[in-house]
Design a binder for these strands. Structure first.
Length: 487
RNA sequence: GGCCUCGUGGCGGAGUGGUGACGCAGCGGAUUGCAAAUCCGCGUACUCCGGUUCAAUUCCGGACGAGGCCUCCA
């Protein structure tokens, strides 16, 4: 690593402290984030980790080089909730076909949502069903090493076979038992043992395995997919140092709620299957969000999917551009809770409109300026980034050259799309705005002829279309007009 | 019951053991044909109670309040 590389600091759930980020192999930075289970449209809460870790991905790409970061986000397409949904929605189809319909449709919707929220596609987006063999290998290893056993048609992970089980969530087996809400299954050696493989009935989806025709448990999927894409597939490229820490990768992320049991169990599986000390070095978790001050739930009527916010007027009586949703999510540090509200979206909308005035439409440059990297390097301190951007945007209003960094940084943060439609000036936009431009030009002519009545009439006409005009004088003292979409 | 977070001005939101980040909204002024935009100015906030300290919003303890996990969940 060169001395010029900024030092990134990240909060590690494993140690509950901020730590300097030191990739195992700086030429191959590896990150895994738990993706969606594709049984239903993603809601706005699901969008948070997608956006948060996209920002981290973009930061890492900038610091270590775009070709030196591997980001995996899985698609869970085998799950009992999916089966239930398939039965409900396609009762007349054979189950496997119905499942495929559900998962394909939901996955396509998720990918579209993610893109419209300004996220880059991860390096890999593996599906669980394409990695069944990898899961079986892991399960076989676990059995062989004495960490898993068959009972009652299931393969179970034995938590007491792992002395330091519970490290991530900071809980021990005794504490868990004290809660006494864990279902007592007679076939489990310990109530906290969890399923790695379970048998499927004839009509349920299943794969042949040494333990009978069945399907994987939830946790094993992520262990298998991270292993495949962050170790197996790139091990030949990894440094000698990385080979001294086989199977381990740099960052594992997800929502706060996944700490236990999901991530805890992933760690147990991956470490015990390979006999290693770490699955990932840094574990990151984003905070939860509420909607209008309450936990989002269908019964409270404050449950919103991403596509609903984008395309319907269900929330606040209007549609919200993806970039507005994105900024609303990024107004707060990723570990803090967010109250997702109409007021918050309106504020995000106003912030973007302000920046649109200094945004250089013609620029395709896309990089995080030094001041942005510096802010994000401190555990993704995005508030600090906005503070700096605000200050520079104010200067850019007077000095256009500063707008270049601001523009490139906004592009690099995934906000480009909105700015292209938000505002313009004659000659700077493409064909679809020509009607606006014609009126603006006509109004300028009226103004120069001191026909203020006509000029105001044109301005009112445009205002009714949601276009606001702003007059200013150019460097020659000539009157010019800019316009922006008020919505 | 156990384990975690968190509590900053009207709102959003960083940060810090000692001069009130930053933004949104609001108010006053400059500018403008009128506007808008812009510029200048305006706010003495850190839940409460103890403790440590010369000094605490910042550290420690407690109370109260909010949220999460312990069961599918971002």
């Amino acid at each position: 690593m060169t001395s010029g590389t900024p030092q990134i600091t990240l909060y590690n759930t494993l140690t509950r402290t901020k730590e300097p980020f030191r990739p195992i192999d700086a030429n191959n930075v590896r990150m895994y984030v738990c993706g969606p289970t594709v049984y239903d449209f993603a809601h706005i809460g699901n969008a948070r980790p997608v956006i948060v870790f996209d920002v981290l991905f973009r930061l890492l790409r900038q610091v270590y080089g775009a070709d030196h970061v591997t980001y995996v986000r899985n698609i869970t397409d085998v799950d009992d909730k999916i089966n239930a949904r398939a039965l409900r929605d396609y009762p007349d189809l054979p189950l496997n076909e119905a499942i495929r319909k559900v998962t394909e449709k939901t996955e396509a919707q998720f990918l579209s949502d993610a893109e419209r929220l300004g996220n880059l596609p991860p390096t890999w987006q593996p599906r669980a069903t394409d990695n069944i063999a990898e899961m079986q290998v892991l399960i076989g290893n676990l059995i062989q090493r004495g960490h898993a056993y068959e009972a009652n048609g299931e393969v179970l992970f034995s938590v007491q076979s792992m002395p330091d089980y519970g490290q991530l969530s900071g809980r021990n087996l005794e504490d868990n038992l004290a809660g006494a809400r864990i279902a007592v299954d007679a076939h489990k050696r310990n109530p906290a043992d969890f399923v790695l493989w379970k048998q499927s009935s004839v009509e349920e989806p299943g794969w042949d395995s040494p333990w009978g025709r069945g399907r994987p448990g939830w946790h094993i999927e992520c262990s298998a997919m991270s292993e495949r894409y962050l170790w197996d597939e790139i091990r030949d490229k990894l440094s000698p140092e990385a080979h001294r820490h086989p199977h381990a990768f740099d960052i594992h992320g997800g929502g706060l709620d996944l700490i236990f049991p999901h991530h805890e169990n992933e760690i147990a599986q991956s470490r015990c299957a390979h006999g290693t000390h770490a699955m990932a070095n840094i574990w990151m978790h984003n905070g939860f969000l509420q909607v209008e001050g309450q936990k989002m739930s269908k019964s409270l009527g404050n449950f919103y999917t991403i596509s609903q916010l984008l395309d319907s007027e269900d929330f606040g009586g209007r549609k919200w551009p993806g970039e507005v949703l994105r900024l609303a999510m990024l107004m707060t540090h990723y570990r803090e809770p967010i109250d997702f509200s109409v007021a918050r979206l309106e504020e995000a909308d106003r912030m973007l409109r302000k920046w649109a005035r200094v945004y250089v439409q013609s620029s395709d440059e896309c990089y995080l300026a030094d001041w942005a990297v510096e802010a994000l390097a401190d555990d993704l301190n995005i508030s600090e980034l906005w503070a700096r951007l605000h200050s520079l945007a104010r200067q850019a209003e007077q000095d256009a050259s500063i707008g270049r960094d601001v523009t490139a940084t906004l592009n690099a943060l995934g906000f480009k799309g909105l700015f292209l439609k938000l505002s313009g000036a004659p000659g700077t936009t493409d064909g679809e705005d020509s009607a606006i431009e014609a009126l603006v030009t006509a109004r300028l002519a009226a103004l120069n002829a001191k026909d203020f009545a006509k000029a105001d009439a044109i301005r009112n006409e445009l205002a009714e279309q949601g276009i606001a005009l702003m007059d200013y004088k150019d460097e020659n003292g000539e009157r010019q007009t800019k316009w922006e979409v008020k919505r």
